[in-house]
Amino acid sequence: MIVELGPHRYDVTTRALVMGILNRTPDSFYDAGRYWSFDDFLAKAAQLVAEGADVLDVGGVKAGPGPDVTETEEMDRVVPAVEALRRRFDVPVSVDTWRASVARESYAAGAVVGNDISGFADPDYLWVAAEAGASVVACHVRLAPRVADPEPVYDDLVGEVRRFLSERAHWAVAAGIPPERVLLDAGHDLGKTPPMSTELLRRADELCDLGFPVFLSVSNKGFLGTLTGAEVGDRREATLAAHALGVGLGCRVLRAHDVAGTRRVADFMSAVLQQRREYR
C-alpha cells in the first residue's frame, strides 16, 4: 500500500507513519495551550521532528465544544504556523481543519494534507484539495465538530462507519484526488461512547479492508481513560498499546502527542510485519 503526502511517497505495506500533533489552540484537551506562544510552538515542532515525526499536523480549533473560533481567527492561528514549519523542516505538513477556506490558505502556505474531522461537510473541501494536489483525511463523525453528542445510537456501529468512510473516500476520488492521497479515520470519541470507540479500535481491520490507508487518531483520548482509569495526562502506555494494536490490524498513520514513543512502537511493529512477510 502506498501513501502520498505532497511530493513524498511512502510504501506502508509494513510501515506506519507517525504524525506529530501541534495545537495552535489555547484550550486543547491534552496540552491546554501549553504551546500557544509561537516560540513554544516552534520549539515543540523541532522536538517532534527530532523524535522522528514523519508528518506535522497543525490545528487551530479543538474538536470538542468550546468558544467560537471564527474563520479569520483560525487562519491567523494556522497559516503562519504552516509557513514557519515549511521554512524550517523537510517534513509534510497537515492542517487540521474542516473549513475549505482555511485549507486553501494553508495549502498556499505549504501544507499538503487536509485533516477534516467533519467528513467533508464543506462542499468545497475536496475540490480545494484536488486543485492543490493535497491529500485528505476522511473522518467519521455522527453530528458535527464541536457539537456535543453524549448519547449516540447506531444500529450497526462498524457497518455504519464503514459505509460512511467508503462513501467519503469515493467522493474524494471522484473529485480528482488519487486513492493514495485519501486516508480513513474512524473518528474515535467523535459521536461515540467509550465502548463504541473501543470496538472501532478492536475491529480496525474491517476499515483497512476498504482499500484505503487507515489513519489512527486515538492519542490520549477519553475512551483510553475509561478503559484504564487514567487521567488525560497519564494515558501514555494505553496510547502506545493502542498504536501497536492498530498497526497490527492494518492502520498506517498514527497521529500522536508522544512522537518518540510512537516512533519506537511503529518501528518495532514494522520489523515484526516485515519478518512475517519474509518468513512466509
Rank of each mutant, 00 (worst) to 15 (best):
A84P: 03
V61W: 10
A130R: 03
H8N: 05
E74N: 05
R88S: 14
P92L: 11
L184W: 02
D267H: 13
F89T: 02
A238R: 03
F89L: 01
R235K: 04
L216M: 14
L224H: 09
D31G: 03
P152H: 03
P65Q: 07
A50E: 09
V91M: 11
E160D: 12
Y10L: 11
D40Y: 01
R276W: 13
V265D: 04
V95D: 03
G133C: 12
A138T: 08
E51I: 02
L85R: 05
G33N: 04
R99V: 02
S118F: 14
V265Y: 08
A111I: 09
W127P: 00
D68Q: 15
F215W: 14
G250K: 09
R88C: 12
V113G: 00
E180V: 12
E105R: 10
S270P: 05
L157F: 05
V161T: 01
Y10W: 15
V79I: 13
L224M: 05
E71A: 15
T70I: 11
L207R: 01
E237C: 00
E83R: 14
A238D: 05
L201M: 10
A132S: 14
Y125A: 06
G52M: 09
R276C: 15
T72Y: 01
V93I: 15
P26F: 04
L165P: 03
